[in-house]
Design a protein around this nucleic acid. Structure first.
Lengths: 232, 232
DNA sequence: TTCGGAGTTTGCGGCTGCGCAAAGTCCGAG
DNA sequence: CTCGGACTTTGCGCAGCCGCAAACTCCGAA
C-alpha cells in the first residue's frame, strides 16, 4: 500500500547527509515510498532492473536460491542505504532477491531518472558507487571467511557483523533488533540450523550470548571476537 | 621495464570494440604499457588506488591474504578486461592484490584521467561499470558455491570456470593455458592442496582430467559438469 | 651431472560438522 | 483453552576432509 512519505524520515540519512535538502526533495517528487511487513519480497532475482531502492526504515535481507531450493543470505542491509542498484553497474536484471527482515519502509524510483540525476547531482552518483564499493568489500571478506574459517568462527563473525550493523544496546549486552532464526544464521554462514543451535547453546552456557526464539543478544562481545579469530 | 605499446594489441579487445579507434589512442597517449613476468605483483592490497589497469595479454590472479598469511584467490582475470578499478566504485585503496598468473602485458593510467573520460566517452564509463557488475555476479556465485557445495563440487566448478574463461582447445580436451598448481586450486576453493591432489588423481584414473605439474587438461568436461552438480 | 627446491602423491588417524531423528517449547489462531 | 505449526534443542553415528608425515618426481641452476 503506497503512501505519502513522511518527510521527517529523510533528515540526515547517513550516506546522503551532504546532499542539499532541496535536491532530495526533487528526487522524492518522482518516487514512491512503501511499507512492507516482515518477510516480504521487494524484488526477485531475475526481475528486470528498472528501479532503484533506498531503505528508509527496517532491514533488508539479500538472498539467493540454489537450484535445489536452498537459501543463501548474501547480505543484510540496514536502514539509510541504497539497494537494488543493479542497473548502475550495467546489469539488466537483479542478481538476487531482496526480502524484508522486519517491517520496513522502502523508497524507490525508476532507473530512467538515473540519467537526469547523473548530470545534476554529482554527490548522488558518487554515493551510489561508494555503496557498490562497500558491498564489494563485504563480499570479498565473506569469501575469505568461508574459504579459511571453521564453522564456529564463521558463526561468531556473523553475529558480530549483525550486532555491529544492526545492534541495539540493552542492559548487559547488545541485541540484534530484528527477528532472526537459527535457520537464518545457518543461511548466512553456510552451515545447518542444528550446528548453529548447538553453538548458541554452548555459548549461552558460557554466558557469551543469550537467546530466545527469534531473538539473540550478545552479552560478551569480546569473547565472541576471540572465538571469531582463527585461533585454530 | 616500461616500453611503448604495440598498437596491434588493441584491435578488437572484447569490452572495447565499440569505442572508436581514435578514442582509444587518446587514452593511450596518457598511459603506459608494461610487461610482467609470471607471479609478479601489479598492485597490492591497501595501496592507494591511483591507477586503472587493463590487461592486454596474460592472466591476472586477484588474491587476498588472511591475517595468518593464508592466500585466497578471489578471481582470475583473462586478457582484454579492466581491473584495479577500485577508484571507480569509491574506494581509496585497492581491496586486494593483483598478481600475474602468467607473462602479461598491462596497460595502466592515472585515475585522475577518469574524470576527463567520463564526460567525453560515455561508452567508457558504461563498460567500466559493466565490468563491476560482472565481477559482483561472479563473487555472488562464489559465495553461494562455498556455502552450499562440497569440496569435490567446488573443485569441479573451479576447473570448469578456468577452462571456460581461459581454456585452450587441444586434441582430445581443453587445457588451462597458464601454469596452475594444486595449491592454487586449493586457494580458489577453500580446501587443501592435498585434497585437490587426491581429487585430481581420482579423476585422472576415470579419464576425466589429465595433469602434469602446473598443467591441467580436461578430457571429459561433461563428466566434470555432472560432478559439479549438487548430486546427493 | 649433480644437487636442491618446488611441486605432487599417498597413507593414516582423527575430528569437525552433517544427517537423521525425536522430543521439547513457544506462540498465535480459533 | 486447546490445538497445530514454527522454532529449537539434543543425541547418536558416520564420513568427508584436514593435519601430519614421508616419499617421489620433475626441473633448473651451478
Amino acid at each position: 500500500m503506497p503512501h505519502k512519505l513522511d518527510e521527517s524520515l529523510l533528515i540526515s540519512l547517513p550516506p546522503f547527509s551532504k546532499l542539499e535538502r532541496s535536491q532530495i526533495r526533487e528526487i522524492l517528487d518522482q518516487s514512491a515510498a512503501r511499507r512492507y511487513e516482515a518477510d516480504q519480497s521487494v524484488f526477485s532475482e531475475g526481475d528486470t532492473a528498472d528501479r532503484f531502492f533506498m531503505l528508509l526504515d527496517g532491514y533488508i535481507r539479500v538472498i539467493r536460491l540454489t537450484p535445489e531450493g536452498e537459501q543463501v543470505i548474501s547480505l543484510h542491509i540496514p536502514s539509510g542505504q541504497l539497494f537494488g542498484i543493479a542497473k548502475a553497474i550495467g546489469r539488466e536484471s537483479y542478481p538476487a532477491t531482496a526480502m524484508t527482515a522486519a517491517e520496513s519502509i522502502v523508497l524507490s524510483w525508476p532507473t530512467r531518472l538515473w540519467d537526469d540525476f547523473l548530470g545534476k547531482y554529482d554527490g548522488f552518483a558518487t554515493e551510489t558507487y561508494k555503496t557498490v564499493g562497500a558491498r564489494v568489500g563485504e563480499m570479498n571478506n565473506r569469501i575469505m571467511e568461508m574459504a579459511t574459517l571453521h564453522v564456529e568462527q564463521r558463526v561468531a563473525n556473523a553475529l558480530l557483523r549483525l550486532i555491529n550493523q544492526t545492534g541495539r544496546k540493552i542492559d548487559g549486552g547488545i541485541e540484534i533488533d530484528f527477528p532472526i532464526t537459527r535457520q537464518n544464521i545457518s543461511e548466512m554462514t553456510g552451515t545447518t540450523l542444528h550446528t548453529v543451535s548447538r553453538l548458541l547453546s554452548a555459548w549461552q552456557k558460557q554466558g557469551i550470548v543469550e537467546s530466545q526464539r527469534k531473538r539473540i543478544m550478545v552479552r560478551d562481545a569480546h569473547r565472541l571476537v576471540e572465538l571469531s579469530q582463527a585461533g585454530h
